[in-house]
Every structure is written in C-alpha cells, then in structure tokens.
C-alpha cells in the first residue's frame, strides 16, 4: 500500500481567533515496505501529519492518496483498518479488564468470528512479546508493558501501514530497543512504518528515509545520510562524531555499527 499526501494544509479552529495553521503544504509519500521517520520540534506538525494518514484529521486543503486514488472515495473504516495509527502515550486508552480483551476489542468490531479474533490476538501478543501478560489487567503492568499492549491492539487489526507517534517516549532504553525490533520485523514483512520521533539516535538505526518538518512544512526529505549530513547540528550522535572529525575518506555512516566500522578503519588505516 502506498500513501501519499499531496499539498496538504491543515488549520486548527479556522475562522476563529484561535486559528492555528499546523500544516502548510506538505507533500510526501510513504512507499510500501519502507520505514519513513518524521522528525521535528514541538509544534512542527508531526502529530497533525500522522493523523492525516488515516483521515482522522481531514486536510483543510490538499488530499490523501491511497495507491493513487483519492482516499475520500474509500470507506473510512476500511482506511483505518489498513492504516493503523498508534497515538502518543496510547496506554492511556487501555480500558478492558485484561490485556487479551483489550487487544480483542478492535478486531471483534471488524465482524470477525471468535476464532479469527482469538488468532489475531494471539499473533499480536506474540509479535510484541507479551503473550505471558494476556490475562493480566492492563493497569497492573509496567509502563513499557502497557505501551506494548496498546500497540498490540492496533496490530491486531492487521494493518498494512503502521503509524507510530513517539512510540518510545518515556520508555527505558531496553524497552525502546524492543520497540525498534518490532518496527524492523514489520518492515521485513513488506509493510511500511511511519515513525514519528524526536530521538534522532533511534531514527538513525531504523529509518530508510527521513522527513524533517518545521513549522508545518517539509524542511528536508531523503535518506538518513542525505538529511543528517546536510545539517549535522540536527543529527544523531554518530553523524555528529563524523562531522566533528571531518575526515571525508571515512565516508558518511549513520547507523551505529557502520560508524564503528568506519572509525575502526580510520584508526587502523
């Protein structure tokens, strides 16, 4: 599935004195099977952009295309099943008495039979490595476990595109690494992920492309190498080390393992 935003503008509270333009002409595509990271400061429009990818918010101007077709022609329920959106701090939305029931909530509403729902739940829990928590109350879990339970609820819809809005905020480093593993596995199955993040070090590890938003506009869009080396002041630690070193012969690594390799060669060479 290919998603494309075409010159999307979004204004909150138009026509009132609280009017705020949040997106000002954003065009970008989410290609099948890629991890697209969207980075930018508070107020850059990242979360607003995320909510346009399944038309939870409608563009004030411009449109969303799904495989080249205007998404307004699609059934909203269908679009939202295929594009799974995980909000910031999604664990705040857990409400059932057990993790299993919570994860089953959405697929059950798709009208699947109980066996199919059970299978979806089993897969989603296994995918997030929380099968052992199925019968626990969501409210008895740690922050990282609750976050994963909430994401399992979206995965149980079997989406083709997963949109994650700051999925690792507030998690400890191990829980962050586990979530990045999920992003990679999802991509390996040929599906795409839109990862909204302000942690550039984690973006460096998983992104195929990076989009930098600034005050509602696309400031840069390209491979991590292109985007981060063009502006090392706003780059992950690996790129900042390479930029501070200034040795062109070492290449332009972004990921940790590549950077370590490049530095080793430089020191031995």
């Amino acid at each position: 599935m290919r998603l494309e935003l075409e010159d999307v503008h979004h204004v909150y509270a138009p026509g009132t004195r609280f009017e705020v333009p949040a997106l000002r002409g954003v065009s970008l595509a989410v290609e099948p099977g890629e991890v697209l990271a969207v980075v930018g400061g508070t107020g850059s429009g990242k979360s607003t952009l995320a909510q346009h990818l399944n038309l939870l918010l409608k563009p004030t101007r411009g449109r969303l295309l799904v495989d080249g077709e205007d998404a307004r022609g699609m059934k909203l329920g269908e679009l939202r099943r295929r594009v799974g959106l995980v909000f910031q701090f999604p664990e705040a939305q857990l409400f059932e008495s057990s993790v299993r029931r919570d994860v089953a909530f959405a697929p059950r509403r798709l009208g699947l039979g109980e066996d199919a729902v059970g299978e979806r739940v089993r897969q989603a829990l296994a995918e997030l490595e929380i099968s052992h928590l199925a019968d626990r109350s969501p409210f008895s879990l740690s922050g990282g476990e609750r976050r994963r339970a909430a994401i399992a609820g979206v995965l149980a819809m079997d989406p083709e595109v997963l949109v994650l809005d700051e999925p690792t905020a507030g998690l400890d480093p191990f829980a962050r690494a586990e979530l990045l593993g999920l992003v990679r596995r999802f991509r390996e199955r040929g599906r795409s992920v839109v990862l909204i993040s302000h942690d550039l070090d984690e973006v460096a590890e998983v992104a195929d492309r990076v989009c930098v938003l600034e005050r509602g506009r696309v400031r840069a869009l390209g491979t991590p190498e292109e985007v981060f080396y063009a502006n090392p002041a706003l780059a992950p630690a690996t790129v900042r080390v390479m930029a501070a070193l200034g040795r062109a012969e070492a290449g332009r690594p972004v990921r940790f393992a590549d950077t370590l390799q490049a530095l080793k060669e430089l020191l031995e060479g």
């Binding site: 400890d172 480093p173 630690a237 940790f256 530095l263 080793k264």
Partner: peptide, 15 residues
C-alpha cells in the same frame, strides 16, 4: 538493570 550507554560512550568504549 536494562541500561544502555549512549552512542558516543559506546563508540568510545568499542574503540
């Protein structure tokens, strides 16, 4: 304790 060194420290340690 589920702690991870930040990338700069990990690079420095590995080198």
């Amino acid at each position: 304790n589920r702690l991870v060194l930040p990338p700069v420290l990990r690079l420095a340690a590995a080198l």
